[in-house]
Simulated assay, not measured.
Amino acid sequence: MSQGRDDAGRFNETVSDQEILKIFDYEDDPVLTAEEVATGLQRFDVQLTTEGVRRRLQTMADAGLVSRKTLGARAVGWWAEVAPELGIETEAVVDERADADEWREL
């Protein structure tokens, strides 16, 4: 999955907020730079520039999904304020096991 352009030359938004939020779950550090988020997306074959990630994170911050803090003269750290939604299959398994006495890995 990557960003493409429409017939007018504008970028199509093909990376969902959920995909970006998942990167925060995959990393050990809860606070990430835009560059670290871009690198995390690349692991899932999603190509988005650091500047593109920065713009998306700002839009997500305006919606209350992430927050930011200036860490230095040019460094900004971002963290998720909400968890990504579970996939349909995972949600079904969690619901199925909700009343179970024993839990195992999904």
Rank of each mutant, 00 (worst) to 15 (best):
S2M: 11
F24P: 10
L65V: 02
E85D: 15
T90F: 04
A38R: 08
Q47E: 13
L57W: 12
V31D: 06
A80W: 02
W78Q: 06
P84L: 05
D45W: 07
I23E: 07
E36L: 03
R74W: 00
E27N: 06
Q47D: 15
E13N: 12
V93D: 07
D7Y: 07
D6H: 03
G52A: 03
A73F: 06
L21H: 11
E36S: 08
T59V: 10
A8C: 00
D62Y: 07
L65T: 02
Q18Y: 03
T14N: 15
E35C: 01
V15A: 14
R5V: 10
R104D: 14
R97C: 06
I88T: 09
I88G: 01
Q18P: 03
I20G: 02
S67G: 15
A80S: 14
L21Y: 12
E85L: 13
L57Y: 12
K69D: 08
E13W: 09
A75R: 12
D29A: 10
G77N: 03
I23M: 05
A8R: 09
V15M: 10
V82I: 10
D45C: 05
S16P: 11
A8H: 08
V66N: 14
A34S: 15
V66W: 14
Y26W: 02
A80P: 02
L48I: 08
D28E: 04
R55E: 12
V15I: 15
V93C: 00
L41G: 01
R10S: 08
R54S: 15
D101S: 13
L71I: 00
E85G: 12
F11W: 13
D101E: 14
A80C: 03
